[in-house]
């Protein structure tokens, strides 16, 4: 888009040519979406959360459609970190994509091992950032999620940060299913996160009335889609406000949750996001990440805004 500077700043010297990313788990590891549009044009491509070992994921049904959203219970199906660095990351590097690699684990040690294997990958130069998925509600651990406990959140980030060079920013992906998201954000930053991704899905459930049982094979699932966008806006707002007030350290926020249009991306930006991910909207429209970037740029141009970065958190100024 001519005349508009769309550069997004993720901190630690990482600049993206535009602020629109895919959301983890909504675009697989790139090859599939690349059949629709060139993923190198995206601000960055966020991969599916990868664990140490291959994961089969859960049985099916794995999804349920809900009003303006969906529930998913995939179970982090994936190849494991060794296959990821052997097959997926080289492909992302070869097509020129900027990768944000999402890592997951059932223990803080597993997170650290995945990070260690990742940073040793020959194609590590293609990795713009690492997103630490401490909040996926699908990781069954007696219902406990790292991101629901400040101590666990801090511990994971501390162990991962010890493995990762300073040049690669670490983003902790936070769950909205907490009483006080600011305290979790503070703990993640204290542990070693350089930034925050907000928000992951909300835990939900759907009952199959005819069968009189939970519809999803896994019972519960993560709610995503436009239905949760106001929750994302609120979470980003609260954490950015805490940063402005000096209650927690200043750090970039990647906004995610229900973004379907350029105006949605703008809303998260005004609340305090330095970049925005598009997730569930991809299932509805696989061109959505590119379209959102285009719509965002058009809005900036028509409103005489020369730099995207000038709008980050701008709703807090009035």
């Amino acid at each position: 888009m001519t005349g508009v500077d769309l550069t997004a700043d993720l901190g630690r010297g990482v600049l993206l040519p535009n602020p629109v990313l895919t959301a983890s788990g909504c675009a697989a590891n790139g090859k599939e979406l690349h059949r629709v549009r060139d993923i190198a044009e995206l601000g960055a491509f966020v991969t599916k959360s990868v664990k140490r070992e291959p994961q089969s994921g859960r049985g099916t049904p794995r999804m349920a459609e809900t009003p303006s959203g969906m529930l998913n219970s995939i179970g982090l199906q994936g190849p494991g970190i060794d296959a990821f660095v052997t097959h997926d990351l080289p492909w992302l590097a070869a097509v020129g994509a900027r990768a944000v690699v999402s890592i997951a684990g059932a223990s803080s040690q597993e997170f650290a091992e995945v990070a260690q294997a990742l940073v040793q990958a020959p194609d590590i130069a293609a990795v713009a950032a690492i997103e630490v998925n401490i909040s996926c509600p699908n990781v069954a651990n007696r219902g406990l999620v790292f991101a629901c406990d400040p101590g666990s959140s801090s511990e994971v980030l501390r162990l991962v940060a010890a493995q990762v060079p300073e040049s690669i920013p670490l983003f902790a992906k936070l769950s909205p299913d907490v009483t006080d998201i600011v305290s979790i954000a503070a703990a993640a930053l204290e542990g070693g996160a350089h930034g925050l991704t907000m928000i992951n899905t909300l835990l939900g459930m759907h009952i199959d009335i005819d069968a009189r049982r939970p519809h999803l094979f896994g019972g519960t699932g993560g709610l995503s889609g436009p239905a949760i966008r106001p929750v994302a806006v609120r979470a980003i707002w609260q954490v950015h406000a805490a940063m402005l007030a000096g209650r927690i350290p200043r750090a970039p926020i990647i906004g995610v949750g229900g973004v379907r249009t350029g105006l949605d991306a703008l809303e998260l930006t005004l609340a305090g996001a330095s970049a925005v991910q598009v997730g569930t909207a991809i299932f509805n429209d696989p061109s959505a990440p590119w379209r959102v970037a285009h719509e965002l740029a058009s809005w900036l141009q028509s409103h005489g805004v020369n730099r995207y970065r000038d709008l980050v958190g701008a709703a807090h100024e009035s």
């Binding site: 788990g25 909504c26 675009a27 697989a28 599939e32 979406l33 059949r35 629709v36 599916k48 994921g57 099916t60 049904p61 794995r62 999804m63 459609e65 969906m70 998913n72 995939i74 199906q77 991809i282 299932f283 696989p286």
Partner: peptide
């Protein structure tokens, strides 16, 4: 005939 959300291989819901 598995339930699919996206049809293009990104949602991982139609597995067998």
């Amino acid at each position: 005939e598995e339930a699919m959300a996206c049809g293009i291989g990104v949602c991982m819901t139609c597995v067998l």
